[in-house]
Design a protein around this nucleic acid. Structure first.
Length: 225
DNA sequence: CACCAGGCAAGTA
DNA sequence: TACTTGCATGGT
């Protein structure tokens, strides 16, 4: 009997096709402007998106959802607006650190900032205290529209449960796995990450490995119980 | 009631 | 280097 093992390229393509076939296009990121997307990226850290929407809505109703307006807010007031997103004191500081980068080094010109070469842009974002790899990559991909693969906890959990990687793979290793084996395509990376989040929410919760009806069941020959 | 959500940084050993 | 902890609201 002949056993055929998929290559990594085929595996990641198969995974994408299954997810896209099951969930359809996700059309991320929900946000009306690059600035809103970047604010949302900081607010959604370890936080349900629904709560982020409440915070964004507060900012919109106060008519301060712009770089100029938000930069001028005292920290306490900013924290009050974003309270529903949780961690509001820390996130207020993180937002202000981000504003300082754009205003200080780029004279408040967000479009110019976002049009830098990808790796330079990523480095600048990572230099901000409060912007880590996932937040930076979310901004690069969804606000700047430049091709980079966003990794999150669901990505790590799904890949380990299907024995595509072992526990030791860190953020960068997982990112390389996708980027070395897929076409460097903004639209593909955009959809792929969004689909992973969706299948994670529905089928791959931390304490509920109920993947019986999961669209990824049997991927890589592994039927997760 | 416990647990989780589209992380990150600082502290400890 | 490799864990652990603080941050905090709102939903299930």
């Amino acid at each position: 009997m002949l056993v055929y093992l998929m290559s990594t390229v085929e595996l990641l393509q198969e995974m994408y096709e299954r997810l896209h076939g099951h969930f359809g296009a996700q059309d991320w990121w929900p946000g009306d402007s690059p600035f809103e997307i970047m604010v949302g990226a900081i607010l959604t850290q370890n936080t349900n998106w629904k709560n982020v929407e409440r915070a964004i809505d507060n900012l919109k109703r106060a008519d301060v959802l712009s770089l100029a307006a938000m930069s001028g807010l005292p920290r306490d007031l900013l924290a009050e607006y974003i309270r529903p997103a949780g961690y509001y004191n820390i996130k207020a500081v993180r937002l202000q650190n981000f504003f300082t980068l754009i205003n200080g080094h780029w004279d408040g010109d967000l479009d110019f900032f976002l049009n830098q070469p990808r790796d330079t842009l990523r480095e600048q974002l990572l230099s901000v205290k409060g912007i880590g790899p996932e937040t930076a990559d979310s901004m690069v991909l969804y606000a700047a529209g430049q091709p980079i693969f966003v990794v999150d906890t669901y990505t790590h959990r799904i890949l380990t449960r299907h024995e595509i990687i072992d526990e030791s793979f860190d953020y960068h290793a997982i990112q390389e796995l996708f980027m070395d084996n897929l076409e460097e395509d903004t639209c593909l990376f955009n959809e792929y990450h969004a689909l992973i989040v969706q299948v994670g929410k529905d089928f791959c919760k931390k304490s509920k490995p109920a993947c019986g009806y999961c669209p990824l069941a049997g991927l890589n020959g592994i039927f997760v119980v």
